[in-house]
Nucleic acid binder design. Structure first.
Lengths: 203, 203
DNA sequence: AGATTTACATACAGACATGTATGTAAATCT
DNA sequence: AGATTTACATACATGTCTGTATGTAAATCT
């Protein structure tokens, strides 16, 4: 077949990743055949195998294309607890407004089996959790130093609780199609969670 | 083949379910072939198809064999918040001491894709979440009435936060093989979470 | 005791997925 | 401008899984 331009090839690769995400979210990662992905992207399996070693490699590309939901570094205004809340709210907002992020996280949290080649991906997720812990611990630490949180608050422990809350929230939010379980009240949920850390309990 | 006694057949069925759980947790649900399960159980696929319609049906049996992790009804001593904490602690304790429960939840939370026939299973999980919400809401309601929790605590919202915390905790606990993320401090985590609801903040 | 199920094992038929090997024409390199 | 890659498409070889149909001897029913 006629060779494509570098730019064209990059587009092809991108189309494959995009289609893979969609097919993954429809049919689940394991049930997805690379043939299906290829067809959806208007290429053959040859193209897929040229750009990616195997399905696990493609899956990693899907994750990278979407990137991470949560970037506390993006929030520099307000006190530590305000920045924490902003970060969490922004993450959940993105799920609502960004179809791509929605699909990717649907796949990661509900449509993927972390076994075999995918076991290492789970390690990645846990690494991301560690990063989250580090950042949130620092935020709580700052909150304590600034007297916004009670002095007896253990930043590391509180951060772990927040991590659990966040992980569960993401997972339940995605599954809560009716909206009654958590979707309808995400904002208040997050606000409440963070408010619970403040020195003057307001909620 | 020689027909088995009803009792023998029940044992066979049970062996199949047990082996299915183990294979599922090793290889993931989708990657598991019924042939593998059958071999492990010392039977052929004929037996598996005799007892179960298909893999999804078998998966449901695996869930039923283990049952639910959390039964607040089991705890009748102490105030509402103490009962809440006891329930949560007991659930996580079970994961530590009950290999079967461990495997089942590993499968449900990390080794299963909720797609196609399994989509309805996810509905079931959300129904269980609703039940959890009902029970915990009632506990918080009682805590408020008994002045153990602040009057401005919204039981329904607090219950949702606890649900998220619990869901995330389960998921992270299972993946935290090194223990550094949450496993080492589950007890304090749960204690802290519940203590955060008490009128006199202690943590 | 005979008729009927039951609890499987065996056999069959077909679909589907994977990885690799090979071909090729145009981009890109020199 | 020629040599070399590149970006795929095509073809091949193979393994695997599913669902069902059929067989059968012993339990269970009547």
């Amino acid at each position: 077949m006629a060779r494509k331009t570098k730019a064209e090839a990059a587009l092809t690769r991108d189309r494959i990743v995009t289609c893979a995400r969609q097919v993954f979210s429809r049919e689940g990662v394991t049930n997805t055949s690379l043939e299906t992905v290829a067809k959806e992207a208007g290429v053959t399996r040859g193209a897929v195998y040229w750009h990616f070693r195997d399905k696990a490699d493609l899956f990693i590309a899907v994750r990278q294309q979407t990137g991470t939901l949560l970037r506390f570094a993006d929030f520099r205004t307000g006190d530590a607890l305000e920045r924490l809340e902003s970060g969490l709210q922004a993450a959940l907002d993105r799920l609502r407004t960004d179809q791509q992020a929605l699909e990717t996280y649907e796949v990661m949290l509900w449509k993927c089996e972390y076994v075999g080649a995918f076991a290492s991906v789970r390690q990645d997720l846990m690494s991301a959790s560690s990063l989250f812990l580090t950042e949130v611990t620092e935020l709580y630490d700052e909150a304590v130093r600034m007297k916004q949180a009670p002095a007896n608050l253990d930043p590391a422990l509180a951060a772990r609780e927040t991590l659990c809350f966040y992980a569960g929230l993401l997972k339940l939010w995605l599954a809560d199609e009716t909206g009654v379980t958590v979707r309808a009240e995400v904002r208040q949920l997050i606000a409440r969670h963070v408010a619970g850390r403040r020195l003057q309990k307001a909620v």
